[in-house]
C-alpha cells in the first residue's frame, strides 16, 4: 500500500506534535503547536509522478479527493474509538472543538450570524491545527480511559501490563487501530511501523505506554486516508 510512506510521515508528525504540545492530557489546554503551512484541501497537480507513490501503484488520474470536514471526521473518530461524540474534544473544557470553535476552519458553515453559507473554498492553515487537536484529544481520552480501567479497555488494555506490552500486543494494537479508524486490514508494513514506534517512545517519553498509545492512535487518525475520501 502506498499509504505506508504517508503513514511514516504521520508518525513523524506525531512526534513533532508531542514536542510542540506542552501537555497532552486534553484539547482544552493551551494551544502550542506550530501552524502547518501546508493547505489541506489543495490536491497537487498530477503532471509529474508522485515520488511518494511506490512503484506498482497506479494513482488516480482524476486526483479528486475531498476533505471529510469536521463533523464527518468527528463522527468517524468517535465511532472508531468508541467515545461519545460530545466527549471527543472541547476547548477550555467547554466548547466543542468541531461544532463550535473550529467549525469554519474544518469546512463547516454558519449562515445565520456569520453569513458563511458554504464551506471555505480552500481550507485555511488553521484546519491542520484543528484536526491535530481533535485527534490528539480523542486519542488521549481513549488511552486515559483504557489505562484507568484495563478490564473495560477498548483498545489499549495491553499497555497497562506491569512489565510493559509484548511485541505481539503492540502489533495487535496496530492492527486494531487501522481496522477501527481506516476500516480495513493493516498492511504488514503498517503494523511493523507502529510496533517499532514503541522503542522510540521508550527512549523519549517518561511514560512510554501512554505516549505510544496516544501517538500511535494520533498517527493513524491523522493519516490522509482518515481525513480525505
Amino acid at each position: 500500500m502506498f499509504l505506508d510512506l504517508r503513514f511514516r510521515r504521520a508518525l513523524g508528525h506525531a512526534l513533532i506534535a508531542l514536542v510542540a504540545l506542552s501537555a497532552l492530557t486534553a484539547c482544552h489546554e493551551e494551544q502550542a503547536s506550530a501552524p502547518d503551512p501546508t493547505p489541506m484541501a489543495e490536491p497537487e497537480p498530477a503532471a509529474e509522478p508522485d515520488p511518494e507513490v511506490p512503484q506498482g501503484i497506479v494513482a488516480s488520474h482524476k486526483a479528486r479527493v475531498k476533505f471529510k470536514g469536521g463533523e464527518r471526521y468527528a463522527r468517524d473518530l468517535a465511532a472508531a474509538l468508541e467515545l461519545p461524540r460530545d466527549q471527543l474534544c472541547s476547548e477550555l473544557g467547554l466548547y466543542d472543538c468541531v461544532g463550535e470553535v473550529h467549525r469554519i476552519s474544518l469546512g463547516g458553515v454558519e449562515p445565520y450570524e456569520l453569513g458563511i453559507d458554504e464551506p471555505l473554498p480552500v481550507a485555511p492553515v488553521s484546519a491542520a491545527i484543528a484536526v491535530d487537536r481533535v485527534a490528539l484529544s480523542a486519542c488521549t481520552r481513549r488511552v486515559e480511559a483504557d489505562l484507568a480501567d484495563p478490564g473495560a479497555a477498548v483498545i489499549f488494555a495491553a499497555l497497562a501490563a506491569a512489565d510493559g506490552p509484548k511485541r505481539a500486543d503492540l502489533e495487535a494494537i496496530a492492527a486494531d487501530l487501522v481496522d477501527r479508524v481506516l476500516r480495513r486490514d493493516a498492511t504488514p508494513a503498517e503494523i511493523a511501523s507502529i510496533a517499532d514506534f514503541y522503542a522510540e517512545a521508550e527512549a523519549d517519553a517518561e511514560s512510554p505506554a501512554r505516549a505510544f498509545g496516544q501517538l500511535s492512535c494520533f498517527a493513524v487518525a491523522t493519516m490522509l486516508e482518515a481525513l480525505f475520501y
Binding site: P43, P45, A46, A47, G56, I57, V58, H61, K62, R64
Partner: peptide, 19 residues
Amino acid sequence: PRSRPVVGDCPRSVAANGW
C-alpha cells in the same frame, strides 16, 4: 492541470492498488 486528455496506466491488481 487535473483535466487531461489521456488516462494514465491501469493497475494490474485492483486489490493491491486499493481502488
